[in-house]
């Protein structure tokens, strides 16, 4: 998909919780249709960044401009802004007292005051696409983790957002359900939806990203194409981080030493 004009500009964004600075002056520009995958060690501020973008966290400094509007302005109408920014959470957070369809229709009907038939048609379209239209009357507790997360994605999409934020959306899923959720996001990427994705799925990141944003200790350490980032990371910090995912090398290196010393995988000798 063609990359369009700038939709989101973040300038020198700062956020701290008490004494702890989590984002230490972060600058980033996102263009329409771009898919950014944000990776980095836990506690690096990935989730906080997403949460600042839709006002779930108050920022301490810097600027966020979304569609020409300053979100760092205290007068921001968040109800209106959040309709344009879809967010999907790690633990789905479907409303347990509502069916899948009711979860999806709540925003369009109550927030956007859309006509019932229109909202229903949109919901049917999306639910059919993620393969869950026949599960529309199920309550969240009757759905699998993967199904819940697909419904949660549709709930955000049904608002017709201009940008989607995914906050570790597969981190709570069993491995066999990860794929069905990632496939949905891959399709959305192909269709040109602007997305910011926080994930630990490196293969997925490689496949879906236009740009990889590597965050560490509250700053952007690398901003590169996936090919460059994964095959030729510029910084030591990125190399070290990527190493975490290299089990094969680790094992080989241990073996190559050829000594009979303690491998971490050997059970400890108690006596």
């Amino acid at each position: 998909m063609a990359i369009g004009p700038e939709v989101l500009k973040i300038k020198d964004l700062k956020k701290s919780f008490g004494e702890t600075a989590v984002l230490k002056g972060l600058t980033l520009t996102v263009r329409q249709g771009e898919v950014l995958v944000i990776i980095g060690p836990s506690g690096c501020g990935k989730s906080t960044l997403l949460r600042c973008l839709n006002g779930l966290e108050k920022v301490n400094g810097g600027e966020i401009v979304f569609g020409g509007q300053f979100l760092t302005d205290p007068q921001t109408n968040w109800s209106r802004t959040r309709q344009r920014i879809g967010m999907v959470f790690q633990n789905y957070e479907l409303f347990p007292h509502l069916t899948a369809l009711e979860n999806i229709l709540l925003g369009p009907l109550r927030v956007q005051n859309r006509k019932k038939e229109e909202a229903l048609a949109v919901a049917e379209g999306w639910l059919t696409r993620v393969g869950l239209w026949d599960r529309r009357d199920a309550y969240p507790r009757e759905l699998s983790g993967g199904q819940k997360q697909r419904v949660a994605i549709v709930r955000a999409l049904a608002m017709d957002p201009e940008i989607m934020l995914f906050d570790e959306v597969t981190a709570s899923l069993d491995p066999e359900m990860v794929r069905e959720v990632l496939d949905v996001i891959l399709t959305l990427a192909k269709e040109g939806l602007t997305m910011l994705i926080v994930t630990h799925e490196m293969a997925f990141a490689k496949a879906v990203a236009d740009r990889i944003i590597f965050l560490d200790e509250g700053v952007i350490v690398e901003d590169a194409s996936p090919t460059v980032f994964f095959e030729n990371p510029a910084t030591e910090r990125a190399k070290k981080f990527l190493n975490i995912f290299q089990y094969d090398d680790y094992h080989k290196n241990e073996g190559a030493k050829g000594d009979s010393g303690d491998s971490p995988l050997t059970p400890p000798v108690i006596f």
């Binding site: 839709n54 006002g55 779930l56 968040w78 109800s79 209106r80 959040r82 309709q83 920014i85 879809g86 967010m87 959470f89 633990n91 957070e93 479907l94 409303f95 347990p96 007292h97 709540l106 925003g107 109550r110 927030v111 956007q112 709930r155 955000a156 608002m159």
Partner: peptide
């Protein structure tokens, strides 16, 4: 708190959040 945030993220206002998300669950 996560349910509240999920409600906010679809643009629900303070009162709508109470009425459609929090109150029904709280009542149960």
């Amino acid at each position: 708190k996560d349910q509240v945030e999920a409600g906010l993220s679809i643009g629900l206002g303070r009162f709508q959040l109470l009425r459609y998300v929090v109150a029904p669950q709280a009542l149960a």
